[in-house]
Design a protein around this nucleic acid. Structure first.
Lengths: 226, 226
DNA sequence: TGAAACCTTCAGGAACTCCTCAAGAAATCC
DNA sequence: GGATTTCTTGAGGAGTTCCTGAAGGTTTCA
């Protein structure tokens, strides 16, 4: 299966940059548009497999774009981006058709998780949703983590952190990388959050022998590949 | 695969020189630019495989350059160079999308390590991340060193030193060369640091027979190629 | 053989990194 | 709206790392 093609329609430069970079890194082909009009044209020219659509665009808004696309027979699923308080209820209904939404600010890992789920549901991706390292399994579709027979109860941030570490098994990840991917882009605490969460993850995941999450002093953290 | 081509955009002569020399010695093709404008032109003329970009440039800054490049469809990964005290929020987000950053002052080995990892991740290099001499293996991606089955626990400086020696196996390296590559460019202690670290490395790596790290009296040190 | 040059090792203090805990703030659930 | 869970911050303390300097070995060469 070739790279899935994703159209990103977002007017804020910084956010568009983060999204595009994150998606490319994860192996997607990305096309960007800064306005609704450009977005429509781009989608008509070469239909994408998925569209990421800010609902608050100057000019034509996200809903309207989506409606027009559907009218033209473009069925690619949409992931809407919306501000926290605004219009969530307007979007609720849209998830029925396989679309989904994300509230700003979000983290790269959150975005990727949605994108994977939606692509999978629409049959555009066969990528497995289950990661495993040692006897720890993380099932994205079910959003469930287990160690051996035992189901682990992780908080949302713990889950994203573990997911990021596991999907990069065998590689050291610096604190900066972890912050950038697991925490949302508006978080700017220069603090020990990462350490704190690694610590609590270790407590829940357990140490089975010599510890799943290794500290690489002066560099970062690593989970060994099997 | 041909030599990877690296564009260095840095206004400080000394630093640019150190970087370019280090990269060339490691076998890369280097193009230099002293301003953001020149950097953009150079990248547009003949797209590089990787860009090293100072964030604090007079005129257009590093972030802006990066954004414009991406807009033009130039996807080469970027290694940003930043000052230690740069406000945290500007540093956030730099590792998204396969990019990375380095805080000044850094050592040449540190820079090379980043460059290799980033090139590898972007598929522009098939160079293995694993060096081996005798039964000692050094895995850059995992940042792990082992001798036989045993994992060795090295400090950051010991690791950089060993890496430099191993990647130049078969060649004598003078104390001056070692200082220049392993210690950051602002370090000016003319002391016995190198000897001290060679000593502690030998203790950890062990001597398995006739010693991995050979002293070449009056000249420097050498690790023999397999 | 003896002196000079060179190399190795060790100990100690300053600086730094990492882990954990506890408490307040924020979000979420019922 | 109150209770619960989750997130973030900050501080303390253990442990590590780095550099220096000094003592003692080894090699070289006249």
């Amino acid at each position: 299966m070739p790279k899935a093609r994703i159209l990103v329609v977002e007017d804020e430069d910084n956010i568009a940059f983060v999204i595009a970079a994150g998606l490319r890194m994860a192996g997607f082909e990305v096309v960007e548009a800064r306005t609704g009009e450009d977005g429509l044209r781009a989608a008509e020219g070469h239909p994408p497999d998925l569209i990421i659509l800010d609902v608050m665009l100057p000019g034509i808004d996200g809903f309207e774009i989506c409606r027009r696309l559907r009218t033209e027979g473009i069925e690619a699923p949409v992931v809407f981006l919306t501000a926290r308080d605004a219009t969530v209820d307007r979007i609720r209904g849209l998830t029925i058709g396989g679309d989904d939404y994300l509230v700003k600010p979000f983290s790269v890992e959150e975005l990727l998780a949605r994108v994977r789920v939606v692509l999978r549901r629409s049959g555009k991706s066969h990528e497995s949703q289950v990661l495993s390292c040692d006897d720890v399994m993380l099932d994205d579709e079910a959003h469930r983590v287990s160690r051996g027979d035992q189901v682990l109860h992780l908080s949302p941030t713990e889950y994203k952190l573990l997911r990021f570490l596991m999907s990069n098994a065998g590689r050291v990840l610096s604190r900066a990388q972890i912050l950038d991917h697991v925490w949302d882009y508006s978080f700017d605490g220069e603090s020990t959050v990462v350490e704190t969460f690694v610590s609590s993850l270790r407590k829940k995941v357990g140490t089975g022998g010599r510890g799943l999450i290794k500290t690489v002093r002066g560099v970062g953290y690593r989970i060994d590949a099997d």
